[in-house]
């Protein structure tokens, strides 16, 4: 069983790293968003330090949304998706593996870039670590929830914008608990562990609901 899973994982990873370097574009977009925020709110370092975790999280959310529409679309265009549907492998597992590969190609670079961008936002080392840790735990949830939107809009020619609209409401809890656990590490009105554990729970829920729902959507869009 692990043979085909590994092969699929490596294929997806190789494709998403190669085609147009989507991982790099995502990180560049993340950098652009973070750069633009101080132009909007002003270069006040105290203010930036206060809203820094929120900026990083929103930047990561937008960067993730940007890359999601390619999750299934390339496979649909060249017919690979139909083959995957017919191959008789559990589709939920296929989607989980595709999401994992997609996250390593687009989500993980964001997590790696976060500490560097945190320097621009005047975050101290503790909050830098906290934001990076919450992003590490939370961005897989964004990818997994996004997979639902990606599979619903896979048959649409220009589904990217609709995908963002559909996914953002579902991603609000992740954003709330990601930012509040990062904040909790800095100002500690509440212990860091409580929201962080809820964030972990959200990721686990997304790991179940995301693949199941998007497998159902892909099956329906195929027949």
């Amino acid at each position: 069983m692990t043979g085909w899973a590994m092969a699929l994982f490596q294929r997806d990873l190789r494709l998403s790293v190669r085609i147009g370097g989507s991982a790099l574009v995502g990180v560049l977009f993340f950098l652009a968003v973070v750069t633009v925020i101080p132009f909007g709110v002003g270069p006040d370092l105290n203010l930036l330090a206060r809203i820094g975790p929120a900026i990083l999280w929103i930047g990561a959310l937008l960067a993730t949304l940007l890359g999601l529409d390619r999750l299934f679309q390339a496979d649909r265009e060249d017919g690979t998706l139909d083959l995957m549907l017919m191959a008789g492998r559990p589709l939920e597992l296929v989607i989980l593996i595709k999401c994992l590969a997609h996250w390593i190609a687009t989500g993980l670079p964001l997590v790696v870039a976060a500490p560097l961008l945190a320097i621009f936002l005047n975050l101290d080392p503790v909050s830098m670590g906290a934001v990076t840790l919450t992003l590490l735990v939370g961005t897989p949830a964004l990818t997994l929830i996004g997979a639902i939107g990606a599979s619903l809009t896979v048959s649409l020619r220009r589904g990217g914008l609709l995908l963002a609209v559909l996914v953002i409401p579902l991603a609000i809890p992740v954003l709330i608990f990601g930012v509040s656990s990062a904040d909790a590490a800095i100002h500690d009105p509440v212990p860091f562990v409580t929201p962080f554990l809820i964030l972990c729970a959200l990721t686990l829920i997304a790991a179940v609901v995301g693949p199941v729902a998007s497998a159902a959507a892909l099956r329906f869009s195929a027949d």
């Binding site: 559909l166 409401p169 608990f177 959200l202 329906f220």
Partner: peptide, 17 residues
């Protein structure tokens, strides 16, 4: 599918908000 995912998510959204 989206409606049902939303129905699952609404309590979570309410709780987190």
């Amino acid at each position: 599918i989206l409606t049902l995912v939303g129905a699952l998510n609404l309590p979570i959204i309410k709780f987190s908000v």
